Simulated assay, not measured.
Amino acid sequence: MIRTVRDVLPRPWWWDAGIALLTVAVGIASMSLVPVRFAVDVPPAAPWVRLALVAAVAAPQLLRTRRPGLALVLVVPLAAADIAAGFSPASALALWDLLYCAVLHGSAAVSRRTQRAGPALYALALAGLALSGASTALLVASAFTGAGLLLLPVWWAAEVRRPTREALAQREAAEQAARIAALDRRAAVADERARIARELHDSVAGHLAAIALQSQAALRTPAPAARERVLGSVRENSVRALEEMRALIGVLRTGPGGETGEPASTAPRLADLPALVESARAGGLEVEVDGVPVDDVPGPVDLTAYRIVQEALTNVSVHAPGASVRVAVGREGGTVLLLEVINSLADGAAGAREHVGAGSGVEGMRVRAAAVGGELEAGRHDDRWRVAARLPLDGGAP
Rank of each mutant, 00 (worst) to 15 (best):
T65Q: 15
R67K: 12
P68L: 02
G69D: 13
G69P: 01
G69V: 10
V73W: 14
V73E: 00
L74Q: 13
V75F: 10
V75L: 01
P77M: 03
A79M: 14
A80M: 06
A81L: 14
A81T: 02
A81E: 06
A81P: 02
D82R: 04
D82W: 14
D82C: 04
A85M: 10
A85L: 10
S88W: 02
S88H: 13
S88Q: 10
S88T: 07
P89A: 12
P89H: 03
P89G: 10
P89Q: 08
A90R: 01
S91L: 12
S91I: 14
A92G: 03
L93D: 06
A94R: 03
A94L: 03
A94Q: 09
L95Q: 08
L95I: 02
D97M: 04
L99Q: 03
L99H: 04
Y100Q: 09
C101R: 13
C101V: 01
A102M: 02
V103N: 06
L104E: 07
L104Q: 14
H105T: 06
S107Q: 07
A108H: 09
A108S: 14
A109W: 01
A109M: 07
A109Q: 10
V110E: 15
V110D: 13
S111N: 11
S111P: 07
R112P: 09
R112L: 14
R113N: 12
T114N: 08
T114G: 03
T114E: 08
T114W: 11
Q115V: 15
R116H: 12
A117S: 12
G118Q: 00
G118E: 05
P119T: 03
P119I: 00
A120K: 09
L121F: 07
Y122T: 10
Y122Q: 04
Y122D: 07
A123S: 05
A123L: 15
A123R: 13
L124R: 05
L124W: 11
A125K: 03
A127P: 04
G128P: 00
L129W: 09
A130P: 00
A130K: 09
A130W: 15
L131Q: 06
G133M: 11
A134Q: 15
S135P: 12
A137Q: 08
L139K: 07
A141Q: 14
T145L: 12
A147Y: 00
A147M: 01
G148I: 04
G148W: 00
L150D: 05
L150R: 06
L150M: 06
L151H: 08
L151D: 04
P153H: 07
W155R: 03
W155G: 11
A157V: 13
A157K: 13
E159Y: 08
R161T: 11
R161F: 00
P163F: 11
T164V: 15
R165Q: 09
A167Q: 12
A167D: 14
A169H: 08
A169F: 09
Q170N: 15
R171I: 14
R171L: 15
R171K: 12
E172Q: 15
A173P: 01
A173S: 13
